[in-house]
Design a protein around this nucleic acid. Structure first.
Lengths: 222, 222
DNA sequence: ATGCCGCTCATCCCATCGGGTGATGCCGAG
DNA sequence: CTCGGCATCACCCGATGGGATGAGCGGCAT
């Protein structure tokens, strides 16, 4: 049990949300609201003075974006841990803000006591995700791949087509693929055409992207 | 606040650790220990009867490995959430057990109240990591992406070029991008040319792939 | 053996792509 | 003020990509 209350700073552009959170948190034993802000600049400016343990941060606010606010806050006040509270989940933003140093990512439709719980965990030096979010993070670590789609496409493409697709995913041109496989460029074009039809895509860029997403091939690093 | 206590099952091969955890948890308001086991087989066998909300699982136990225990428990008892408590952190094991359905991963050198906190969070449907662990998980999510490269490229591309790049990553043609951004196709071509030069790539496919790898953009799913 | 399918290739055609050159207007740094 | 970066566009050009058609060859199945 912490000796002193956990100091919480609220950043949200909606008056109503701030009010609700304030009530919720101040009601909670061991938690105290020590400040609030309604936009990104204010948040960055005020957080340092308030010296909270946890910054409860809305992603969408006028001025700076949530990710940028997170980054700046982490830059200027080492000790502050950022718990993102957002209303919808944008995958890109999720990873962005995590990389920017956030310690948690909750959806606003979380039950109220979840929020209090999460604040405590974050203050304790842990990292908390909403369950739905966590699935994505873990899925992301395990693979960017979509197993279902992979199964679906797996039998669709012939062996040779898969070979060609793999080389396409390395960014090779038809001519290069032809040389690599010791076949004519025309043949490669035929294969590519079939791949495009089978994957229902209009050009090689789209085809490679969907193939990578489906886990058919991996992105060709050097 | 849960109406009934959170039911906790302890799985650890060290008598002393079980004793300490039991004391710690039973002391904690809202948490109750409903069973314990000292090896993997016992854990799998006993957990279902005990019907805990949270299984506190040591990774290293005689018999089954922690990952396997986690997988089996998740297979047979849907409702049980697994909180891994381990003494050393092995990266591979971490991802393995997460993929096996664990809801959290703490190091044993966590402060005592951290554990209680984490149990509550996990019971609340959240996912909790120790801070040190979380760094790795986040690094893992960015595994597809290369932070260093991202930093390197970040300032290289102008705002407009980034917009174009994002649309390229959705598989759009120059013409489509032009319409989307309300600019001429020629302009798009100019931007694309600059992007190719700056990323040192020969065609849009390669450019998109390296951009995705670098984490500059995400793969454009529907 | 007849047909289907995968792999191979050729030829023709046109849209798209990417490069190059040059031009305009804007804006901020030196 | 000038220089350079950015965003916008036009024109020309060669290379590439993708579609369509047709065709020969080798398996494999009914």
């Amino acid at each position: 049990m912490p000796v002193t209350d956990v100091r919480v700073f609220i950043a949200d552009d909606h008056e109503l949300v701030r009010f609700a959170l304030k009530a919720l948190i101040d009601d909670e034993p061991g938690l105290t609201v020590v400040g609030e802000a309604a936009d990104g600049e204010d948040t960055v400016a005020l957080v340092c003075e308030a010296q909270p343990d946890v910054l409860l941060l809305d992603m969408r606010m006028p001025g700076l974006g949530g990710t940028e606010v997170c980054r700046r806050v982490r830059d200027v006040c080492e000790g502050v841990r950022v718990l993102v509270l957002t209303s919808y989940d944008d995958e890109e933003e999720l990873f962005g803000v995590l990389a920017a140093g956030a310690s948690g990512y909750l959806l606003k439709d979380s039950r109220a006591d979840n929020v209090a719980q999460a604040i405590r965990s974050v203050a304790d030096g842990q990292v908390v995700f909403d369950d739905a979010i966590a699935q994505r993070v873990i899925a992301g670590t395990t693979a960017t791949t979509d197993r279902a789609a992979a199964e679906e496409y797996k039998d669709l493409l012939s062996e040779r087509e898969m070979e060609v697709l793999r080389l396409m995913a390395k960014g090779m041109s038809n001519k290069e693929i032809a040389r690599a496989l010791w076949i004519g460029e025309t043949t490669v074009k035929t294969h590519v055409s079939h791949i495009l039809r089978k994957l229902d895509q209009n050009d090689r860029t789209q085809a490679v992207l969907t193939a990578v997403r489906a886990g058919l091939v991996s992105m060709g690093g050097e």
